[in-house]
Simulated assay, not measured.
Amino acid sequence: MSKIGLIILLLFVSKVEAQTSALAVSDSLYAVGEYDKAIAALKEISPKSEKIHLKLAKNYAANRETEEALFQYKKVLENNQNRVLTAVSYGELFMKAGQLKRADSVFRALARQYPKNARFQYRLGLIKEKQKDSTAIHHFMFTIALNERHQGALYKVAKNKLQNRLYTMAEHFSKMGLEVNPKNPSLLSILAQTYSSLKLYKEAIPHYEKLIQLGQESVFIYTKLGFAYYREGNYKDAIKMYKNALQIEDRSSDTHYTLGKLYALTGDLDKSETHFLMAILIKNQSVDAEYLSLALTYKMQEKHKEALKYFNKALAENPENERALYERAVAADNYYKDDKAAINYYQDYFNKYENIGNAGMLSRAKNRISDLKKKMHLAEK
């Protein structure tokens, strides 16, 4: 080999080693969540192979730089349309970004190319579901026709049948999925709810119990199981389930009310009275503070329309909430272009609290009324 050939070979080997080292560094950085640094390392590599572009896409996606990630995927697919997994990642990123039409286009192309692939039909169903398109169920059914073991599609179809009160079909598709995976909590829940809807509480109970054994503890599951026990005359276990529900959410008027009835049935009238009183107390409690807090959150986000809506809700709950009345005027001031409307809101607050209200809020309201009136007067000249 000539000296020139040897030099070229050594330079090539050196370049390959440098790229390999840069890739190893970027992989390590990705593994610890240092996506910016991983991207910087990958961008230094030149020329960029498909592998580099895919690693860039992966890092950009993890770093929530969606458009950059999509650009890298597109670059790869423009040069090699046969990269199916890359196309899948491309389509799924469109879905995640809410670009549903473009996601639909990607998965439709894949479904045409691979008509027997259940995964692509399922993705099309998910896209249609996000678009509130009723044809989603057809894609889920098609998925099952291609793969009758597909857990996601079986759940979607079983849930749809339950919602539409087609209980026999809901039971059928739930059982199909559970034959493959008896511990699928989603399908267990659909089957249990189906039996509850049919008032077949004895059949529903084992499935609710299994959900709890699998760690699926929630107010919904506990109250559903509690009600099934209650209808089967098992008041002791029913009480236990409703008490478990209260451990998760203790401000439920309905749960306290049901416990009141159950304790009455067992003859424990003191506890029955306690829970009935709690149910009444919770139901009668005003939630103006919660509405006010939510409205103030919207105010900080400068979502003035939403803020105005929830200040009104707070006042509907408690017309004597001074802060809500003042803040409603501020929200109206920011939302409405009509200065006269804003003045009216401030005036409502000022008139009600002029002699008894918060001095700071009253002063701000008075000054703002004055400023708005001057503004209107100047506009008329």
Rank of each mutant, 00 (worst) to 15 (best):
L294V: 08
K58E: 06
N351V: 03
I7R: 12
L9Q: 15
K236V: 12
M95I: 05
K159M: 02
Y353D: 01
E302P: 04
D36W: 09
F276Y: 08
L178E: 08
K55D: 05
L154G: 14
I52L: 10
N164Y: 01
K366S: 05
A62R: 12
S26C: 01
Y349C: 08
K271R: 13
N284H: 11
E148L: 01
L29N: 09
G125C: 01
H304F: 11
L277W: 04
A24E: 14
K161P: 14
A109I: 08
N355Y: 07
L211H: 07
R165N: 09
Y73W: 06
K37T: 09
P47V: 10
A342P: 06
E44G: 15
S363M: 05
L225S: 11
Y229Q: 12
Q301Y: 08
R123I: 02
Y30H: 15
R108C: 04
A228Y: 00
R364V: 07
L11E: 05
K243P: 00
R83W: 02
Q121K: 13
K313Y: 03
E249H: 14
K161G: 15
Y349W: 08
E34M: 00
K305S: 06
M376P: 04
Y291L: 12
M278H: 09
I52N: 13
S196L: 07
T86Y: 02
S370P: 04
